[in-house]
Design a protein around this nucleic acid. Structure first.
Length: 521
RNA sequence: GGCCCUAUCGUCUAGUGGUUAGGACGCCAGGUUCUCAUCCUGGCAACAGGAGUUCGAUUCUCCUUAGGGCUACCA
């Protein structure tokens, strides 16, 4: 009774409208995880059938964002010469997008390059009586819908062109090149039922489904036609997509039936939501994956976060941090939720902080470098330290990062709370006093610090030894010694410890700031 | 309006025909501490409502309510 299972083939098929949406990322991720788990094939296809929404550079953007997030695919579109496109198969240059190559036996993977195919299939449906030509213009359709709405009827095409045109008339209009679309002839009184992989049985009545346009008058297919034709031709076995497609699924099933094709399995994953539970949108925050990267979120954190929105390994799992390998191992469509999930930035921040803490200082520096360079304070600091070598500057930044590592929710915050590492400081004398200390006591405290630190050699200038020596010098009276020191080094109420600050600043700068403070007395 | 989907702390979620309904984020309090952050401990906080099935329902069924999605020659 062994039934050889078809090899799993899934796809992510975005429309290039500008950038990779965070919801799209999750859809791509679930497809990726499913493919990896099942040792299947993951295809990346471009659904650019809407000419009106063409955006320059969108395809490249999309692919790049996917690459940046660490997702890879086995077939479809790639950016020429990128590492992700190191596949042995033959690469074909995309006809429409410069710098894009297509790899795989089921191409082209760009829908605008498959127009002839869709036309052929649409015509076949017309020939088989499963679809028909429609010459109604927008004006008539609008009027029709308005009337239907006034009569409290659902807006649906009234089949004027199907019922009133003779085949001779149709032929003539076609010959005269009248603008025409092809519509699916949706059968009456049928119940369309399918088993969704995450939702179970879903049922629709065909009478509520409009005669969908399949082929537009500009010769381009609509999503419905292109999607079904491609998924079939590309031998897609599971269609994993957002819940917004659930109401379209019966249309797609009707199309598979009209063609006599076996339909794939469907899995509609829950939507990502704004705080007010509406579909995640630009208006209420960032939705582009690149925005999050630019704000200093680590790709691992974003992947981890987005994976957990609508899925959980279950079985009492209390794990919060998952590597990609763990996600692949544990992913299961059966455990995907039905209800939408609110995108909560606070939790992303926490998760990102966890990932930042796990980084080595070198890794942290690599990722944070560009964020430092974008800071206002960086330029003047850089100029002021012109005598430092590149290595010395790098060393300094790494020290700052070592101190800040436990304080960052994202990388763009580097240095924000600790600008005194990069600038000259100014403060009120009163800041130097801890609790009720008198001027005399503050002065003596600073002198003591100066002595201890002055006696500390460069080779002893480590976090551990500085802490050890200063604590020994302070004895019971920690606040009296440490607060004035810290205040004179940082010029602010809140900061990292004086040991850490002194360590970063270095002996010379530390003593300089101490001496300057002493001049106030 | 019509169709479809959904419903456990504020948010992400675990979970079961009998549990003190568990964890995480956030929040609050305490501890560590020179301040901040980290870290540790504790606290607040949920099964939308109503029927039915059952000895017993958060769990199964139905209804209601609420929320969402779709309703284009967009995807």
């Amino acid at each position: 009774m062994t039934q050889t299972e078809k090899k799993v083939r899934v796809r992510f098929a975005p429309s290039p409208t500008g950038y990779l949406h965070i919801g799209g990322l999750r859809t791509a991720l679930y497809n990726y995880l499913f493919a990896k788990k099942k040792v299947g094939t993951f295809v990346l296809r471009v659904e650019d059938t809407d000419q009106k929404r063409f955006v320059e550079g969108a395809v490249e953007n999309l692919i790049q964002a996917l690459e940046q997030m660490g997702l890879s695919w086995d077939e479809g579109v790639y950016i020429m010469d990128h590492g992700t496109c190191n596949i042995e198969h033959e690469k074909k240059n995309s006809k429409t997008y410069a710098g894009i190559v297509e790899v795989g036996e089921f191409g082209p993977y760009v829908q605008s390059e498959r127009l002839e195919l869709y036309k052929k299939y649409a015509e076949q449906l017309v020939k088989d009586g499963k679809a028909y030509y429609c010459f109604c213009d927008c004006e008539r359709l609008e009027q029709m819908r308005e009337k239907q709405q006034q009569a409290k009827l659902p807006p649906m095409y009234d089949r004027y062109c199907l019922d009133n045109l003779t085949s001779a008339e149709i032929a003539q209009k076609l010959a005269e090149k009248c603008p025409a679309v092809v519509r699916l002839k949706v059968p009456k009184d049928e119940i369309i039922e399918f088993e969704d992989l995450v939702r179970g049985k879903v049922t629709f009545a065909s009478n509520t489904i409009d005669d969908q346009v399949l082929l537009k008058s500009d010769g381009f297919p609509t999503y419905h036609l292109a999607n079904v034709v491609d998924d079939h031709l590309m031998e897609i076995t599971e269609v994993i997509r957002g819940e917004e497609w659930l109401p379209s699924t019966p249309k797609h099933i009707l199309l598979y039936r009209a063609f006599g094709w076996q339909e794939p399995q469907f899995a509609h994953i829950p939507l990502l939501l704004n705080a007010d539970k509406s579909k995640l949108s630009k208006r209420q925050g960032d939705v582009a994956v690149e925005d999050y990267l630019q704000k200093g979120y680590l790709k691992e954190a974003v992947i981890n976060f987005v994976a957990m929105l609508g899925w959980n390994p279950g079985e009492g799992s209390v794990q919060e941090i998952f590597s990609m390998a763990e996600l692949i191992e544990k992913f299961d469509l059966k455990k995907v939720h039905k209800a939408g999930a609110v995108f909560d930035l606070k939790k992303l921040d926490w998760l990102n902080a966890q990932y930042i803490k796990k980084l080595s200082v070198d890794e942290l520096h690599n990722s944070a470098k560009t964020f430092f360079e974008a800071k206002e304070f960086f330029e003047t600091w850089n100029v002021k330290r012109a005598v430092w070598s590149v290595a010395e500057k790098e060393e300094y930044l790494k020290k700052v990062l070592a101190i800040e590592q436990d304080r960052l929710a994202n990388l763009s915050q580097v240095g924000d709370e600790n600008e005194f590492f990069f600038k000259d400081i100014a403060y009120e004398k009163s800041l130097l006093a801890w609790k009720e200390m008198t001027d005399q006591q503050v002065k003596e405290s600073l002198q003591k610090s100066l002595q201890v630190l002055g006696d500390t050699s460069e080779s002893q200038w480590t976090r551990e030894l500085l802490e050890q020596n200063l604590l020994a010098a302070a004895g019971e009276k920690r606040g009296e010694l440490l607060w004035p020191l810290r205040a004179c080094l940082t010029g602010v109420q809140k900061s990292p410890s004086p040991f850490d600050c002194a360590w970063v600043l270095g002996k010379e700068e530390t003593l300089k700031r101490l001496q300057r403070a002493l001049q106030l007395f």
